[in-house]
C-alpha cells in the first residue's frame, strides 16, 4: 500500500484525494478557472462583483435542476422531463396565486407538489410498467409541457403577489434570493448524497442494481423516491424562475434539461450511474453559467450558445468515457 502511494505522482495523489475526500473531479475545477480567466481576458465587464452575482443568479435555476439530474443519473436513471416539469410547476404556482387568488404559501407548495407528482408518475412508470426511463421521461417532457400550455391557455400568467416575487428578486444582504436558495439546497443535497444511507444506496443502485438488491435495498421503492425528489426539485426550479421573471410562463425551461444534465456530467457524474457528487455538479453548473455569461458579454448570438452547450455535453461524456476505458485497461 505504501509503496504504491509513493509511486504515484503529486498530481495523481491530489486527484485521488479530491475524489475521495471532496467527491469532486479536479479537472472540472481547472476547466472552470481556465474558462473564467479566458473570459476575464476577453471581456472587461466579466470581472466584477455585479457580474459575478449575475452569473450566480442565472445559474440558480439550472443549478437546482442539475442537482435533480445528479441524483437521477447517479442512481442509473435519466430524467429528460426536468425542463418541462419546471415549466409546469411555475404555471401551476402562478395559477394558484393569480387565477385562484390563494395565499402565496399555497402557491409555493403548488409549485413543488406539481413537480413531485410529475416525478412520482415517472417513478411509478419506470419501476412498475417497465418502460425505460428514457421513454417515460421523454413522454413526460411532452405531457408536462402540454399540460402547462393547457392550464395557462398558452399565455404567461402575470400579476404574482409580492411575496412570491421576493423569492425571485429579493436581495437580503445584497445577495439574490435564488442564489441563497440554490446554495442551501446544494448543501443539503451534498450532505444527503455523500453522507447518508439514502445517498450511498442511490450510488450503489446506479453502480450495480444486482448488488443493491442482494444487499437488501428495496430497489424499486428507492427509484420511486429518487424520481419524485427529482420532480420536486424541478418544481423548486420552476418557483425560482417564475418568481424571478414575475410570470408563470408555460414555455419556461425549454431545453433546460440539456444544460442541467450537461452540468451534472461535467461535474463528474457517471452517465451510467454509480458515481456522482453535488459539489462537482455545482462546479459543472458554474461552468455552464460562466460559458453562457461570457458568450453573452462577447455578444455571441444565443443560437451559438445553444450549440456550445450541446457540444460541451458530448465532449464531457467523451472525455469521461475515454478515462474510464484508460483506467480499466491498467
Amino acid at each position: 500500500m505504501a509503496s504504491e502511494t509513493t509511486q504515484l505522482g503529486f498530481w495523481a495523489r491530489v486527484q485521488r484525494a479530491s475524489v475521495e475526500r471532496l467527491h469532486i473531479r479536479l479537472e472540472s475545477l481547472v476547466v472552470l478557472l481556465a474558462l473564467s480567466t479566458a473570459m476575464a481576458l476577453l471581456s472587461p465587464y466579466f470581472l466584477s462583483l455585479s457580474n459575478f452575482l449575475n452569473i450566480l443568479l442565472a445559474t440558480s435555476t439550472i443549478g437546482v435542476l442539475a442537482i435533480a439530474a445528479t441524483f437521477v443519473i447517479g442512481s442509473g436513471g435519466l430524467d429528460l422531463s426536468l425542463g418541462s416539469v419546471m415549466g409546469l410547476a411555475g404555471v401551476a404556482g402562478a395559477f394558484v396565486a393569480v387565477n385562484l387568488g390563494w395565499p402565496s404559501v399555497l402557491a409555493v407548495i403548488a409549485c413543488i407538489l406539481a413537480g413531485a407528482i410529475a416525478g412520482y408518475i415517472n417513478g411509478q412508470l419506470v419501476t412498475r410498467a417497465f418502460v425505460p426511463a428514457f421513454i417515460v421521461t421523454l413522454g413526460m417532457l411532452g405531457l408536462a409541457r402540454g399540460l402547462a400550455l393547457v392550464i395557462s391557455q398558452g399565455r404567461a400568467i402575470y400579476g404574482l403577489p409580492p411575496e412570491i416575487v421576493y423569492i425571485g428578486q429579493g436581495r437580503p444582504f445584497g445577495i439574490p434570493m435564488p442564489v441563497i436558495i440554490l446554495v442551501l439546497t446544494a448543501i443539503v443535497a451534498h450532505m444527503v448524497l455523500a453522507y447518508t444511507r439514502f445517498g450511498r444506496h442511490t450510488l450503489a443502485l446506479g453502480d450495480s442494481e444486482g448488488a443493491a438488491r442482494a444487499a437488501g435495498i428495496r430497489v424499486e421503492h428507492h427509484r420511486r423516491i429518487i424520481y419524485t425528489l427529482s420532480g420536486a426539485l424541478a418544481g423548486l426550479a420552476g418557483l425560482l424562475f417564475t418568481a424571478r421573471v414575475n410570470a408563470g410562463d408555460p414555455t419556461a425551461g425549454i431545453n433546460y434539461e440539456l444544460t442541467a444534465i450537461t452540468a451534472a456530467i461535467i461535474g463528474g457524474t457517471n452517465l451510467f450511474g454509480g458515481r456522482a457528487s453535488i459539489l462537482g455538479t455545482m462546479i459543472g453548473a458554474l461552468i455552464m453559467g460562466v460559458l453562457q455569461n461570457g458568450l453573452t458579454l462577447l455578444a455571441v448570438q444565443s443560437y451559438y450558445q445553444q450549440m456550445a452547450i450541446g457540444g460541451v455535453l458530448i465532449l464531457a461524456v467523451f472525455i469521461d468515457q475515454y478515462q474510464v476505458r484508460k483506467e480499466s485497461r491498467v
Binding site: 453502480d207 450495480s208 444486482g210 448488488a211 442482494a214
Partner: peptide
Amino acid sequence: YQDLSLAKQQ
C-alpha cells in the same frame, strides 16, 4: 454470489 454482486465504483 458467483458474480460477487459488488458495487464496483464504491
